[in-house]
Design a protein around this nucleic acid. Sequence first.
DNA 1: GTGAGCAACATAGTTAACCTAGTTGGCTCG
DNA 2: CGAGCCAACTAGGTTAACTATGTTGCTCAC
Lengths: 125, 125
Amino acid sequence: MVKNTGRPAYLQIADDLRAQIRGGSLAPGMPLPSTTKLAEQYGASLSVVKLAVGVLRTEGLVIGQQGKGVFVRDADELPPPVKAGDVAEEVAELRATVQDLSKRLAKVEEQLATSTTRRPGHSSR
Amino acid sequence: MVKNTGRPAYLQIADDLRAQIRGGSLAPGMPLPSTTKLAEQYGASLSVVKLAVGVLRTEGLVIGQQGKGVFVRDADELPPPVKAGDVAEEVAELRATVQDLSKRLAKVEEQLATSTTRRPGHSSR
DNA sequence: GTGAGCAACATAGTTAACCTAGTTGGCTCG
DNA sequence: CGAGCCAACTAGGTTAACTATGTTGCTCAC
């Protein structure tokens, strides 16, 4: 049950689940209780439970598998068996692009500094 | 505007904002546009924007101050090796960052070209 | 017995509405 | 002139409803 502290409910639940994961109550590979179960377990609405799980997902502590459940991430599976290859190529290309951009930017910044004193503050809107 | 890729809208927006932060378009200490502004800017609903900002908040990239705005966290206080995701994710983020840099650079170069027509200061490289 | 299809349940995403609460700037009234 | 209130804006939290999609297991027809 979520208490009435200043801390929002979805963070309380996220904290609790995180503690259970770190503490081992929820071992790696194990599924969390379903959203519905958690909701009644904590006496919260489905929405806040989904928010809480979303936080843990963003943190990378759990992985949600649609249709199956939300599973505690294994510490070992972090080094990914990625099928790189063309990805490496992309990285190389990106790095080259970044270098080029850096050169151009340096040049432009130099010119800008010598020719004018005002920087173009660009505001998106 | 969010595109119709498989990636959910709130993650696209989060990616874009993250790229702008990493790329420098949104400097530390600067406020993000308000939730409402972002919503119309991306052509998304308020809900997805709030979700996107929530992700960035969870990642610690930004700090929301109620009543004032959401501010980019100072680079000093964020040691963000937050997530050890897979390579593909990093590549995507890099690409987004590069895009952002390209935009900024193109804009600056254009300004420079128009303002220095009479004074072509050719600094070598 | 086997396979197709369906129902139930799961996460995920999106939207909308309502409420709280902090900040700011202007306006009014004493 | 100053104090205080108020309106407008801000982020944050909560709930509910709907859709999409994936998984699993059961049933029923053949």
